[in-house]
Amino acid sequence: MSKDPIITARDVNVFYGDKQALNGISLDVPRHKVTSLIGPSGCGKSTFLRSINRMNDLVDICRVEGDIKIEGKNIYDKDVDVVALRAHVGMVFQKPNPFPKSIFENVIYGPKIHGLIKSKSDAEEIVEKSLRRAGLWKEVADRLQEPGTSLSGGQQQRLCIARAIAVQPSIILMDEPASALDPIATAVIEELIDELRAKYTIIIVTHSMQQAARVSQRTAFFHMGDLVEAGPTKELFTTPKDERTQNYISGRIG
C-alpha cells in the first residue's frame, strides 16, 4: 500500500446493537489524495465514514471495535477529545444542511467555536478564503448577509464545503455530496473536490462509479459490511481482483 498514509484502519468492526454493520475493515488512506468508497446500498460505506470522525458516537446503540489511526494516533483512545478530532476531520453531508443563518455566519461558525478568530478582519479573511476555495465567492460576495438557505442546492452544498474547510481540517469526509444535485452542480462539485486535493485528504462516498472514476485516485469497494478490495481507482475499475467487484462494476449487483 501507499507509504505514509494519513489514516490507517485495522480490523474495524462496527455494531448497531447486536447487528454487525462492518466486519474487520482494514484500509489505508493516502495523504492529499481522494479516496472513494463504493458499494451497494446498506453495505456500510456511511458507517465507515462516520467512524472516522466519530459521528457514530451520536448513535446510542453503535459500538466500534478495532483501531482507526490518524497521523498514528488511535482516535478511539480514551484521551481523544471528539471535539478536537472533528476539528481535524471535517464532514460534508448528503443533503446540503446550511444553518438557518447568514452565509457569513455559516462559514464563520466553525472558526468561532474553535477560537480561531481574534479580530473582525480575521473573520472576513477566513470567510473570503473559504468561500473562494469552495468556488462560491464570486456568486455570493455581495450577499454574505443573506440566509444560507436562500441559495440553490448546489450553492448550498458548496457553502457546506466552505464551512467545513473554514475550520482548516486536514481530512474532509464527504457522504454522497452530489447525490441531491443536478448534473451541472455535480460537475462543479467534482471539479472543486479535485482542486481541494492539493491541501486536504478527501474521502468520498458515492453511488456513481463514473464519479468515483473522475474524482478519486483510490477506490475501496464495500459489500455487505466487508471491504472486498481497495486500490488505485484505474486498476480497480479495469482489472478487479474479486468477482463481487467485477459484478458490481459491470452492474450485476447493487
Binding site: N53, M55, L58, V82, V83, A84, L85, R86, A87, H88, G90, M91, F93, K95, N97, P98, F99, P100, K101, Y109, G110, I113, H114, C160, R163, A164, V167
Partner: peptide
C-alpha cells in the same frame, strides 16, 4: 441535519444547542 452539521465540525453539544438549535 443541523445538529450533525454542527457536531461534525467539532462543536460541543452545548455550542450546537446555543448557537444552532435554539436560534
Amino acid at each position: 441535519a443541523l445538529r450533525e452539521a454542527s457536531l461534525g465540525m467539532g462543536a460541543t453539544r452545548a455550542e450546537t444547542i446555543k448557537k444552532v438549535i435554539v436560534p
